[in-house]
Simulated assay, not measured.
Amino acid sequence: MDGLVHIYTGNGKGKTTAAVGLGIRAAGSGMKVLMIQFCKGGSTCEELVIAQLKPAFELLKDKKISKFTWQMTEEEHKQMRENTLNLFNLAISSANNKDMIILDEIMAAISAGFIDEKLVFDFVKNKPSHLELVMTGRNAPEKLVELADYVSEINAVKHPMTKGIDARKGIEF
């Protein structure tokens, strides 16, 4: 089976949730899944479930992130670029040994300048033929959209945040 390329983009809630759901489906069918989260710090509830699915479904992220990108110093931005590149290189080196790789918030990493769009484009274009590749994040670059087989745009029509309702454990994180 040839692997295809998926993108979940848009300004709505649910891009990561959709990718996690697809990863769980893949792991449940015997596939080996690696999810790498970019630009996300702290822990989320889905990590607890994914940890129970090891070794079929593994999650890696930069655990040193403690601020939003606009709150970071130039030195912290430099460290983020280095950490992002290291995580991305891990995805590349794992590509032959996994059936699915999820690059969660890779579009945010591109937008923030933590990784060069060309590196991501080259990986997508030259990925192993068996690999199912899933990418998430707002503002997917048009070049990546053109390469993808699936593109789902998730747009916010309504969101509780506009009413002042904070993120809730188990729902937003």
Rank of each mutant, 00 (worst) to 15 (best):
D2P: 13
L133N: 00
A167P: 07
K98N: 12
K118W: 08
Q52Y: 02
N139M: 11
I7N: 02
I102W: 00
V5Q: 09
V124H: 02
T17H: 02
L85V: 14
W70H: 12
K158P: 10
E153A: 06
A112E: 12
G164W: 04
S94M: 13
S43K: 15
T44S: 10
L87I: 10
F68V: 07
G12M: 05
L34S: 04
I36P: 01
M80R: 14
L60Q: 13
F68H: 10
A19V: 11
E82A: 11
E146W: 08
A148F: 00
A140R: 00
N11R: 07
Q52E: 11
F114Q: 01
V49W: 03
E82F: 04
S66A: 10
L59I: 11
R81A: 08
N11E: 09
R168C: 04
I7L: 13
E74I: 10
A148N: 02
P160Y: 05
F88L: 08
V120K: 01
S29D: 13
Q79D: 09
K15F: 03
S152P: 07
F57R: 00
M107K: 10
R25D: 12
G23D: 04
A27L: 10
K40A: 00
Y8C: 07
G21W: 12
D104R: 08
R168E: 12
I154T: 08
V20L: 07
M31G: 10
L144N: 02
V33R: 06
E58T: 12
K118M: 12
G28F: 14
V20N: 02
V134R: 00
L87D: 06
A56Y: 12
E146V: 15
A108E: 13
E76S: 04
K67D: 00
T84N: 09
K163Q: 13
D99L: 06
S152L: 07
D99G: 05
F57A: 03
V20D: 00
L59P: 00
E117H: 06
G23L: 05
D104K: 09
L60D: 12
F57T: 02
L53T: 03
E46K: 01
V5I: 15
I154S: 03
E58S: 04
P160Q: 05
K78S: 11
S152W: 08
R81K: 15
N89P: 10
A56H: 13
M72D: 01
G113S: 03
K63L: 14
G12T: 14
L133R: 03
S93I: 15
M135K: 06
K78T: 14
I171L: 07
K169I: 15
V157G: 04
V151L: 02
D149C: 05
A112I: 15
V134F: 01
G113R: 04
